[in-house]
Design a protein around this nucleic acid. Structure first.
Lengths: 194, 194
DNA sequence: CCGATATTTCAGTAAATTCTGAAATGTCGG
DNA sequence: CCGACATTTCAGAATTTACTGAAATATCGG
């Protein structure tokens, strides 16, 4: 491996982290390398820097492309393929979440919906179905939230995340401001909330 | 494998999904089984239902315990260990997120902080460091949001998630209500935002 | 302390995955 | 169409991970 020490540390770490996800070490390393690189790299560049075989790099790049995590580019007068990650890290996050949803959540939801249609043949199955229903509803809530938030532009998304749970406070404020006339919200209700 | 069809479908699916995470098939299956089960199960129960070796189950349970994903219980007059998942699915989510953070995000943040302290020895390293800084800041924002939200009780958390990005609307409303006196916000600013 | 039962450990094997080199395929300029 | 270069494919090798059975360890009631 032929990399500046600082880069190498990061690349090795992401190789290991990749293993903890479904992603293999080389793919993790390729991605990390591209992420840190100023200019796009071609396959041969990657081979030299990571010290793995050409075919391995080819497969790794193919996988990263399947995940929409790298962009293929070309230089004029050079017919090799160059690869880069998006400059905007938020775009990376969006892609990652989107792809994991597509591969993990969506199929699970299909399966849950299907199984929930069936008639339980025993109390045991009835209970199992209830549990699956809980999971289904949870995923629905989370994906609904995601679908909603995902549409925000980055600036607003950051705003929202920075707020965190302080949103609650604003909500409560809103509730106080727009009391339905006649509901006569009792100020002492606050005590209960504590 | 000796399971009601409906349960088996789910268990097999989670075995496969487990593989896509760092978790191996058997561990995924054990967890799925416990999740669906009404009563706690002992190791021998799991062996019978999944048709894997006793030692494999032992290791799998150990791993699930290390993840805090299962609770160990005992029945009076029975010295075998019984295992169950929390009844509250939100508790499960919280544990999962917490543990993944501990294993993946926290070590990555340490590494990033460490590498960011070093002096870049070349323009290449300087750029790499900038990229790492972006990642660091991103993670900081996300973990900050998480730390904040994680404290909410489940009811409020669900409220927040149900709202999704509608929070934005409320924020804008708040901004309009509490304009700093003298700032004279121009209504035409809205046009720019579009 | 003993025997019965439960769990864990671990060395060896099985299985799955990752990686490589060589060959095949694709693509360009001339 | 050819030759040079680029990329992909793929069978087998290397490595890693998962799994098993047997032995070791632990814990209980008596």
């Amino acid at each position: 491996m032929n990399l500046p020490p600082l880069v190498q540390t990061f690349v090795l770490h992401f190789g290991e982290m990749g293993s903890r996800w479904g992603i293999n070490r080389t793919v993790g390393q390729i991605y990390a390398l591209l992420y840190l690189s100023k200019a796009p790299l071609n396959a041969e560049d990657i081979v030299e820097r990571l010290g793995v075989s050409r075919s391995n790099v080819s497969m790794g790049l193919k996988e990263l492309q399947a995940w929409n995590l790298v962009r293929l580019q070309h230089k004029p007068g050079d017919r090799r393929d160059y690869f880069a990650t998006p400059d905007d890290i938020w775009q990376i996050v969006r892609t990652l979440v989107e792809e994991r949803k597509k591969r993990e959540i969506d199929p699970t939801m299909s399966l849950l919906r299907e199984v929930l249609m069936q008639e339980p043949a025993s109390p045991e199955e009835r209970h199992a179905q209830e549990r699956m229903r809980e999971m289904h509803d949870l995923f629905e809530l989370l994906t609904g939230w995601y679908a909603d938030v995902q549409r925000l532009d980055t600036e607003r998304l950051v705003q929202l995340l920075t707020l965190g749970s302080k949103v609650q406070k604003i909500l409560e404020m809103k509730d106080r401001l727009f009391v339905v006339p006649g509901s006569k919200k009792n100020p002492r209700d606050d005590v209960k909330d504590k």
